[in-house]
Write a protein that binds this DNA or RNA. Structure first.
Length: 936
RNA sequence: GGGGCAGUGGCGGAACCAGGUAUACGCGCACGACUUAAAAUCGUGUCCCGAAAGGGAUGUGGGUUCGAUUCCCACCUGCCCCACCA
């Protein structure tokens, strides 16, 4: 009788043994193909791991064990990202030094990971807070500094009043600090900033190289970089030397720019102060905008506000018109040039603003012939009245309507032709193009029917009195009214009233036309397509086509203690000087008080003996830079350090870098898509450009695990009391069961809720595997043998594609089948054990060495090869359909001819029932699979 | 407002990439065996209607096809990301 499956005993025993034997130690002295398999390393927070965290680690563990058994030299390391706000805030809250807190948390994390039986090579463990590590983080910073990619700036930046530090754009989510959820403020602060925008274009275009990245992550990065193609154009200020630079994606609408808007913080406002006659009002608005929170200022749907700069006018370079200048907070200081040309006819925001401040709206793009559906005209008489048509209704359902003249476009017509034709039909009067005073596109005529892209025109009836026009042939009557009377008239339709309101200047219902089309009201450019006009008009006014990016430069300073000191020295005589490489690392001083000061200075600024130093260039007195680096610094290059973790002369040895890079498989959360993964790509490209690394991109394949939610479907959090600790699961069910369950929950990339009931399934499976030991014999049933080979193929393929759930399912099917047979050969069983080994490393090791008596670890064994010859058994099940519906199946022993298959199918009793008395039109045959009989 | 992804039993999901017996595998549930009893384990059953024959079902509606969960179009619903980005 077999002893019962005792997971505790087995798991502890083999974890100890693996450590002693160094089963997972990686070396480079090797001719095997390499596989660099990497997990995003964790921040060791005080809460420890919950069962969601190891999901990705288990996946890479399975993957790396598989690759190792396949004969690859595998690097699968782990380390700690321990600088930054989470660790420091935890330390402050628990009143311990961050260093101690970090050490304690790391020990906890490490023991949790070890319990799960992960195959990390712990000899390569790294820790971003280790001076031997951050020496090289500082070194890379200095390379950036020397190449001009790090600069000092005092621009207002995002400031978290609770964490008391500046933040990068990426650290702000929905206007709140990503760490503590406090609303961020704008605060001018001396900062070190990395010029990541210099790499924006390459970071964007090289995304296309990343064939093995998930599409949604790539899309997130593209959106974050946010490229817009457009033009930069300058507008003169009348009677002034100053110019206003604007960026627009629609230079084709320049003739429609009827005013300009500067961001409230635009520096030009200050410069124009002496010309602005309402300075008090302007200044008040600026102050108000400054103190509004980001959220308040950028809230969608908020009514637009602004103040006109009285006394100054800009000049539209296209038509030399003087146009007013406003400041308004709907223009953001930090995007583009902080100033816009406003084209209310073609931009929804400008339109809202124009309506509110009663600014002219000029249509300069109209949908082209293919795009518009109908055209409508208001016709003004010399008496100031307007003509409408009255359609008599005859029932409740069809009441009388008063509408403008006009109608639907005929195929191929242009707008003016369509209008003139409609007017001729309905009014029996000839109109000419010259009588059109105003033409605009709108959806306002939509009267319940779906008519898109209508045109509204205002005609002036100069020499034809209404008595000269007569009724059209559809029985309409002509109504002559003032627009005010029409608005009050009950029979005038609501869309018609909207048009009237628009012409009366109320401008309530018209939507901006933001599409492309043909140019009008733009002088020599009339008739050009808007697409072609972009370049032409830009050139005409001396602007230049260029791109803008949403990506901002990376604010790289934190006014906090727990980070890498920025290795720079401020000398009065020499300016900012780099710390010489031989003096790296600049270590964090041990201090009593490390709480943030809130003054905009780092706590390091108070430590005189650390701050005061000598200038490396002139040897005069100097002060150290006291800002520290953000949390993201250490993680921007850590994957390189694992390759050569103890090298004291270089951040990574050249030959080793060439051997291991790039990372073949990188697994980690999608929440890092727009931060870590962009920062790391940026640093890597910089290192590549300067010859320090050999690849253009760091990570070949990327996979993101779906979240594991609590049993209640909510995110696992102390707040909800739904956290499951992996230690408890390991105690109760064992690490092997935990691993199998997490992989069996569903597709790797999908989110799933933890289910305390379902975990028993994988446990039962392992017990069945264990019990099968009692059924070992010398004979393996041929059908089982065939199934085994199918299982080898399936499991191999599924691991390669991260489809662990179906791999486990295939192994379950094999075990179920073996149990049914009652016996399984030792050899076949040993093959199966190797398939299971990456998933359940402990139980399989116990069986492999302890029971089957192998000397070497199963994790160093060869992956089984499947024999295609054994999979093809010769038997096939043929499905018989009649008209696509399954009516019967039959089995054949070996390949048969198409004719035979048809004959057998037609002869089946069940099939005859469906085909009797019917014409057989056609028979579709798919070899060894299906016969489909199509009857008349 | 823009973009991405997804809708299949009581539940997690499989088949979708490459159209060909929809619901594999697991959980749960029901019944049975073992047991004084329970737990564990084992066995049988488990999409819906129907006695059966058969019919219906993969969010909804269309299309392509001999045949659609799979491909195409529109819509509905849910989740995620971005968002006054000029």
């Amino acid at each position: 009788m077999m002893a019962a499956y005792d997971h505790k005993k087995i798991e502890e025993k083999w974890q100890r043994q693996w450590d002693e034997e160094g089963v997972y130690i990686t070396t480079e002295k090797d001719t095997r193909p390499k596989r660099y398999i990497l997990d995003m390393f964790p921040y060791p927070s005080g809460d420890g791991l919950h069962v969601g965290h190891p999901k990705g680690y288990i996946a890479t563990d399975i993957y790396s064990r598989y690759q190792r058994m396949q004969g690859c030299n595998v690097l699968h390391p782990m380390g700690w990202d321990a600088f930054g706000l989470p660790a420091e805030n935890y330390a402050i809250k628990n009143k311990v030094h961050p260093r101690q807190a970090v050490e304690k948390n790391i020990a906890r994390y490490k023991s949790q990971l070890k319990k799960i039986g992960l195959d990390y090579d712990w000899e390569r463990e790294i820790n971003t807070t280790d001076p031997a590590y951050y020496k090289w983080t500082q070194w890379i910073f200095l390379q950036l500094f020397k190449k001009g990619l790090a600069y000092e700036s005092s621009e207002p930046i995002n400031w978290c009043p609770s964490c008391k530090t500046g933040l990068a754009n990426e650290d702000v989510q929905d206007g709140r600090c990503e760490r503590c959820d406090t609303f961020v403020e704008k605060k001018p602060l001396r900062q070190w900033v990395l010029r990541i925008t210099q790499y924006a274009e390459r970071l964007l275009t090289d995304i296309d190289e990343l064939a093995e990245w998930p599409e949604h992550i790539k899309e997130l990065q593209r959106n974050w970089i946010g490229k817009s193609d457009g033009a930069e154009i300058s507008f003169c200020i009348a009677g002034h030397n100053e110019k206003i630079q604007i960026f627009t994606t629609r230079p084709d609408t320049l003739f429609g720019a009827t005013y300009m808007v500067l961001a409230p913080e635009h520096p030009l406002v200050e410069k124009l102060q002496s010309d602005i006659t309402n300075w008090n009002e302007v200044d008040a608005y600026r102050h108000e905008a400054e103190h509004k929170g980001e959220i308040e200022r950028t809230a969608v749907g908020k009514e637009k506000t602004g103040v006109r700069l009285d006394g100054v006018m800009a000049v539209n370079p296209a038509n030399n018109e003087d146009i007013p200048i406003f400041i308004a907070d709907y223009v953001l200081g930090y995007y583009g040039t902080g100033a816009i040309m406003a084209v209310p006819a073609h931009d929804e925001r400008d339109l809202q603003f124009a309506k509110k401040y009663n600014l002219p709206i000029r249509q300069v793009v109209i949908p082209n012939k293919e795009q518009f559906e109908g055209a409508w005209a208001l016709i003004e008489t010399p008496r100031g009245t307007f003509l409408f048509q009255k359609r008599d209704g005859n029932a409740k359902k069809d009441p009388s309507k008063i509408v403008p003249f006009g109608g639907m476009r005929d195929e191929g017509e242009d707008i003016t032709f369509c209008l003139i034709r409609e007017l001729k039909e309905e009014l029996c009067a000839e109109f000419s193009k010259e009588q059109i005073r105003f033409l605009i596109a709108s959806d306002s005529m939509n009267d319940g029917e779906d008519i898109k892209n209508n045109f509204l025109a205002l005609f002036y009836l100069s020499d034809v009195s209404p008595t000269h026009v007569r009724l059209g042939d559809e029985g309409e009557a002509i109504m002559e009214m003032t627009l005010e009377d029409a608005l009050a008239h009950p029979d005038v339709t609501e869309p018609t009233k909207n048009i009237i309101r628009y012409f009366l200047g109320e401008k309530t219902m018209v939507k901006a036309y933001t599409g492309e089309g043909d140019i009008i009201n733009s002088g020599v450019f009339d008739g050009m397509t808007s697409t072609n006009a972009k370049d032409a008009i830009t050139e005409f006014v001396g602007g230049k086509m260029m791109a803008q990016y949403k990506l901002r430069d990376w604010v790289f300073s934190r006014q906090r203690y727990w980070g890498e000191p920025i290795p720079l020295i401020h000398c009065e005589a020499c300016g900012v000087v780099a710390v010489p490489e031989k003096d790296l690392p600049v270590t964090l001083p041990i201090v009593e008080r490390y709480e943030p000061t809130g003054t905009g200075e780092s706590p390091l600024a108070d430590i005189e003996e650390w701050v005061n130093t000598t200038c490396p260039e002139c040897c005069g007195p100097a002060k150290r830079e006291t800002n520290t680096m953000p949390q993201w610094a250490g993680s921007s290059w850590y994957y390189l350090r694992y390759i050569d973790p103890t090298n004291s002369a270089h951040f990574v040895g050249e030959a080793k870098e060439r051997y291991w890079m790039s990372v073949d498989m990188y697994v980690g959360g999608a929440e890092h898509a727009t931060r870590h993964l962009i920062y790391a790509r940026f640093w890597h490209k910089f290192l590549y450009d300067n010859g320090f690394v050999s690849t253009n991109e760091p990570f070949t394949t990327l996979k993101s695990p779906g979240l594991i939610y609590g049993a209640d479907g909510r995110k696992m959090s102390k707040r909800w009391g739904n956290v499951v600790n992996p230690d408890d699961v390991v105690d109760t069910y064992g690490a092997d069961t935990l691993r199998l369950y997490e992989m069996f929950m569903g597709p790797f990339a999908d989110a799933a809720a933890w289910n305390t009931e379902s975990i028993i399934g994988p446990r039962r499976f392992l017990e069945r595997v264990w019990r099968l030991l009692g059924a070992l014999g010398e004979y393996t049933d041929p059908a089982l043998e065939s199934l085994l080979h199918k299982t080898i193929e399936k499991v191999s393929e599924d691991i390669r594609n991260f489809r662990f759930n179906t791999a486990i399912s295939a192994m379950m099917i094999f075990v179920n089948e073996a149990e049914k047979k009652g016996t399984v050969g030792r050899e076949a069983y040993a093959v199966f054990v190797r398939l299971l080994a990456p998933f359940a490393p402990h139980i399989t090791e116990e069986i492999w060495r302890g029971v089957l008596g192998n000397a070497e670890s199963v994790h160093r064994a060869h992956w089984p090869k499947y024999d295609a010859g054994k999979i093809v058994s010769g038997a096939h099940i043929i499905t018989v359909q009649v008209n696509g519906k399954v009516r019967d199946v039959f089995e054949i022993d070996k390949d048969i001819s198409e004719d035979d298959a048809r004959r057998i199918a037609l002869a089946r009793e069940k099939i005859k029932k469906w085909t009797d008395g019917k014409d057989i039109k056609k028979i579709v045959y798919i070899k060894n699979k299906l016969v489909n009989i199509v009857t008349g």
